[in-house]
Design a protein around this nucleic acid. Structure first.
Lengths: 188, 188, 188, 188
DNA sequence: GATGAATGAGCTTTCATTCAT
DNA sequence: TATGAATGAAAGCTCATTCAT
């Protein structure tokens, strides 16, 4: 059994994260993944396809991580708290993944269709949570995507600042940020 | 007097915004700016320098735009509101600038030192506003950078989603978002 | 018993004919022949050998086709006519074979030694016919190879023009061309 | 003034002639033409374009060479003789050009449209000669293209055989071949 | 015998940068 | 100052060949 595919994905992600889009070449990916250049092309049609696959693969992971231990029978805040903590932990624990994602999603490779498909495929339960909260009059009267964005997706840029060392968080700030997110989406 | 320098900066920004880091070559920049390739090197030492200059130049602009009509004698909310509206307007009116900035700041070109310098140089008044608010017990007990981030910088990703067509905003949502930002930083 | 060898030869010929020397790769040959890449190397030492074999194989076929129904007891013109018609029919019926042959023989793979060997091995009867005609004072006083060339081999380029659609032949032109070949080699 | 373009064309022609289509790489062309690889791309959009240009350029030359000293006031045979000798001399004197042409015209790069355009552009006077001869009842009742082919173009394959050393010509054979061509197209 | 995943040298092409004009 | 032709290293990708199964 071979894990070449996963090694290639990981190498591409790490290279982009550390050296940027322009510092990632197929030859370097091959070297870091410990395979021959040609081997990459047995798994991915071309560079663009590889980049898209990294993105999708990682979002698939994210969606798993986010939903862990979220019990739809819990009260709203408990669920939200779990979602928020899961998100934050994943972002902090996977700085390469985050750094890759921001660069990818800001690039012209990424577009509305892809965003839509990925939300549909991986993040439905998350949006349903916000949907339910809104219908229960708990959250602001906004599309679930927007609520989700304000509460969770927004954490990406914040987390990036931490990773880059621009901001340092302690336990107390952590608590405050969780609270800030909650207050942002809460109906008055 | 010649506007070549500005034309080059604009061309670089637009190319990265529309074609990504990898779609921007010096010859393409030259063509779009209507100058010879060699001319670029009379104004910028090399490609990296050019990219850094685009970033700094635009943040300089942003800082002007954000502070317009903000009167430090106004009540806190009024000042905040003005800052928020200025920020949002600039982001929406300059999608290339936004798109460039996110890509640049996610790239390895950007680091803590640069961030710090730029904040120091251009955004001091903004941070001072949040500082004062916090000291007056209005805002959460957080570093001004973090308050500023939650209230304003966070709007970048949101704005990008609009630009890419993933989210559509109407007047009502606009109002809600302003309110959400305000609630995020407000002390309970 | 397996026809893999023949399938490989046919695939190589067809690919070169339709896509040129540079459009023929071993993996493409394998795919078209419905075998694994490695399998080709069980039948042919390397690519060059494969190409040489296609050439030889086809010339072997040609020599058979050309000599069909040629009776050395017939008068000279009758024999010539049969040779000419056989040649022309084969060329028209096997456009891939023709196209391959011209490309191969124009390439540096092909040289005097190979030409000589093939003539010796497969086309002896043809040359003997021209030899006899010349000695009987019917044909020009030229080496048999040259007579054969003028009368038959020359038809290759003509046939290629037809295949590529540059020239269209009807029954009447056909007759004239046969006559032209005959007159070219005839002693005055 | 720079002759880089011509040097590149010549290098490409020679390489294909001696090493075949697959032995000609852009790097090798650059080396033989004494320019940098990138320089080729300032003169030719890509490899295919370069190959097409070599072909057109050389046919342009051929057409000049063929028509030298052909006087339309001369008798038919004199004109024909001059055309034939010109053609033969050019072919013998420019073996690379010939070898290139046969390979190119046998390849899938070459098609009816290109053939037609080139005939139209460069070989009109030649076809007109055969046209006039036919209308005067001197030549066979065939399209001028076919007469031209039988009398002149056919010499390519013959000349290739000489170049490759498969056939050797002396003055006497030369005379006979000229005569053979004349007899091939002559009306009985 | 037969397979096809893997290899890495070598292909075409691009592009940051230089420099003679 | 400004130009843009020229450079050649390095990019993305292909493909003849091998070899463990």
């Amino acid at each position: 059994m071979s894990d070449k595919r996963e090694r290639i994905l990981a190498a591409a992600e790490a290279l982009i994260a550390h050296c940027g889009f322009h510092g990632m070449s197929m030859q370097l990916v091959a070297k870091h993944a410990n395979v021959a250049t040609g081997t990459i092309y047995r798994y991915f049609a071309d560079k663009e396809t590889l980049l898209r696959c990294v993105h999708e693969e990682r979002l698939h992971e994210v969606s798993h991580a986010i939903l862990q231990n979220v019990d739809t029978n819990d009260p709203g805040y408990a669920q939200f708290r779990q979602l928020w903590l899961n998100t934050m932990r994943y972002l902090q624990d996977n700085p390469d993944s985050l750094c890759y994602r921001i660069q990818y999603e800001a690039s012209p490779l990424f577009n509305r269709e892809e965003e839509h498909q990925i939300n549909e495929r991986y993040f439905k339960p998350v949006f349903e949570f916000f949907e339910r909260g809104r219908e229960a009059g708990l959250f602001r009267d906004m599309p679930a995507e927007l609520l989700g964005f304000l509460a969770l997706e927004n954490l990406m840029l914040l987390s990036q600042k931490c990773t880059k060392g621009c901001i340092e968080l302690d336990e107390c700030l952590y608590q405050q940020l969780l609270d800030a997110s909650w207050n942002a989406i809460l109906k008055r």
